[in-house]
Simulated scan of single mutants.
Amino acid sequence: MMKLESTLLDTLLQKQNYRKSFSSIVNNFEDKLASFDPVNNCIEIEKYFSIGNGLASIRKKLLSDNVFKPEDIYTYQTKGGKNKTDVKGLYVFVHENEPIYVGISRGIIHRTLQHLRGKSHNTSTLAYNIGLIRHKILKGEEYTGRRKEFDFNNNVTPAKDFLFKQKIAFLPIENSEELYLFEIFCAMKLGCWLNKFETH
């Protein structure tokens, strides 16, 4: 038991070795966002993510239209042990030249599909949050019930239909620390109030 505790402590007390320092990551964020320019470098969602297009066909079309480069594509393993081929990075939903939401994922094509076609509040989180706003406008009060009891079809489905009509910009980012930090930076700089960084 003593050996177990000693090994456990040694493991817990070891220091993380990051590939990049905090300052080296964040120092170029202003230039990175200016270069990314999501408003002027976004694409029409319906053109790529319409019903009937699967992950592979969407990826192929995004590659052929130079939205992504071949080196952006990689394969990762899901928690269920399945291999998925996608792009790790950041995405921004844009409505009429106004960014409305910033998200990150290790599979941004699949994550976008979830926002648009997900069957629950856990997958279509952006549409769910827009559905909550819709509910408040219609009912004059905030929804206070349980998430899974929220009327998905009447509130979230119209929100998904709305998202299909929007544009989206993608930015591949391989470094995880940079990805997380840049999401917060972009959300704050672009004024995307739908992004919440509160703890639960």
Rank of each mutant, 00 (worst) to 15 (best):
K82H: 15
L8F: 12
L190S: 02
I168A: 02
F49R: 00
K167A: 08
L138R: 14
F164D: 12
P158C: 05
M1F: 11
M188S: 11
N97E: 14
Y48M: 09
K79L: 14
Y74C: 08
F36L: 02
G103K: 01
R59M: 14
G131Y: 01
I173C: 09
E141T: 08
E198Q: 14
L90T: 09
Y180F: 09
F152D: 07
F36Q: 02
I25Y: 03
K189L: 07
N28T: 10
K69P: 11
A127S: 09
K136N: 13
N154K: 06
E178L: 00
I173L: 09
H135L: 06
T112C: 07
S35R: 05
R111W: 03
I73T: 07
F162D: 13
T144Q: 14
L33Q: 01
I108H: 02
D161L: 09
K32F: 10
L181E: 00
M1G: 11
Y74T: 07
K79Y: 09
L33H: 02
I184V: 14
S124F: 07
L181P: 06
S120V: 01
K32E: 15
S124H: 03
E30S: 05
G118V: 00
N154G: 15
K47T: 15
K139S: 11
F152L: 00
L126Y: 06
G54A: 03
C42R: 07
L62G: 05
N195V: 00
I130T: 02
E177K: 01
P172Y: 03
L13G: 10
V94M: 05
F185W: 09
S21N: 06
Y76W: 12
K32I: 04
F170Y: 15
V92D: 05
L62Q: 07
S105D: 10
S105Y: 04
K119D: 12
G107W: 02
T78H: 05
M1P: 13
K82Q: 15
Y180K: 03
Y48D: 08
E96F: 08
T78F: 04
E178F: 00
V67A: 01
L138M: 15
N195E: 06
L13F: 14
G131D: 06
L181H: 02
K79D: 15
G81R: 00
K88D: 11
N153T: 12
Y76S: 08
S120P: 12
I168P: 13
T125Y: 14
H95R: 12
K139G: 10
H121T: 07
A169I: 01
L8V: 11
P99I: 01
Y143V: 02
I43S: 01
S6W: 13
E44N: 09
I109D: 07
I137W: 10
L4T: 11
T11S: 12
A169Q: 00
E149K: 04
K60R: 10
L126C: 03
N17K: 12
F150N: 04
N155D: 12
N28Q: 09
I130H: 03
N195W: 05
S6A: 12
D31S: 08
E98N: 10
Y143G: 05
W193S: 15
E44L: 09
I25T: 04
N97F: 11
F29C: 05
F49I: 02
P70T: 01
G118D: 04
T123S: 12
V87G: 03
W193P: 07
D65Q: 04
G52V: 00
I51A: 15
K119R: 10
E174T: 07
